[in-house]
Design a binder for these strands. Structure first.
Lengths: 161, 161
DNA sequence: ACAAACCGGACCCTGTGGGTCCGGATATCC
DNA sequence: GGATATCCGGACCCACAGGGTCCGGTTTGT
């Protein structure tokens, strides 16, 4: 179904949470660094998973890490400067729809007969371009401290397929 | 990696193969109907898999099936009228990046805290729109009865979207 | 020195894509 | 009308990877 991994979903949630804590501040003064247990508690995502996601994001340079006591993570850039492709690439690796795309001819056993060799890149680039235009600032929905039933009405209505 | 299923890849190959046989014709006169074993032999895809893909495509109305002796499959519409989303939807089901998108709130256990509820639809629609603009006619590369090394040079360069 | 937090890796386990097979239905040909 | 070729529908099994967990090591502040 062209489904993306759940880790990516978590990553977006975590990043947005990181942005929320940045301005409000935890009151500590350290420009809003947040610990993975703290983010886990705030988002409902299991803590080890949060740590794993954060690690991947730090590795990709989307968040900066502060080690030691009172350490934690903070955003490396504002949400508006982070596109969805960045997150996907950080968590799931580079976007490659088919095995043919990334590794040249490696692994494609029917390469000699394949009629669409290299043409998936067309699709690949189209998706990449579309995703590049969407930033996390776009995805940060309504602040939503709203009663759950009401929220569902706001988020659900007729997924215009 | 936002990877799509291999079945979808096969479906595109099969559909293009179907289009190839349509004009040249197998000489039989039946407007180019092709059997699944025949397509399997021509594409290099294992025959049961071809049959499975064809079945899904027929179910989605992308190809028409002719039962009985000398039966087979033929395209229901020209390649230019089949977009990539059609193929993906036929093989992999409707495009839904996350579990949140298709089933409303079903299954999302942290829904009460999720900060991006419903916002993946934005990404979803962007991808769907991008893929809708690409037809199989766009993906049918050069006829390519060419030596592999040369082919790779032709197929690779800057996919002019 | 102790504690808090990140860091890096290893580990297992379930879900599902992906491939195979079989019996039944159906249309053509002899 | 029977034989044959083909599609049709389902059940079945296997392997791979997502994804969740845990542990020891390292860095930094108190």
């Amino acid at each position: 179904m062209l489904r993306l991994s759940r880790l990516t979903d978590y990553a977006v949630v975590v990043l947005i949470r990181l942005a929320e804590g940045e301005r409000g501040g935890s009151g500590r003064g350290e420009e809003g660094v947040q610990t993975s247990p703290g983010i886990a508690a705030a988002t409902g995502v299991p803590e080890p998973t949060v740590a794993k996601v954060l690690k991947a994001l730090a590795c990709a340079g989307l968040v900066a890490s502060q080690r030691g006591a009172h350490g934690g993570y903070r955003l490396a850039r504002p949400l508006a400067a982070i596109s969805v492709v960045d997150v996907i690439a950080a968590v799931d690796g580079p976007i490659a729809l088919t095995a043919c795309v990334d590794g040249g001819a490696s692994g494609c056993d029917v390469a000699s007969l394949c009629a669409v060799r290299g043409r998936w890149e067309l699709v690949n680039d189209a998706i990449r371009a579309a995703l590049d235009r969407i930033t996390l600032a776009d995805m940060r929905a309504i602040p939503l401290p709203l009663p759950p039933p009401l929220r569902m009405k706001l988020a659900a209505p007729e997924a215009a397929q």
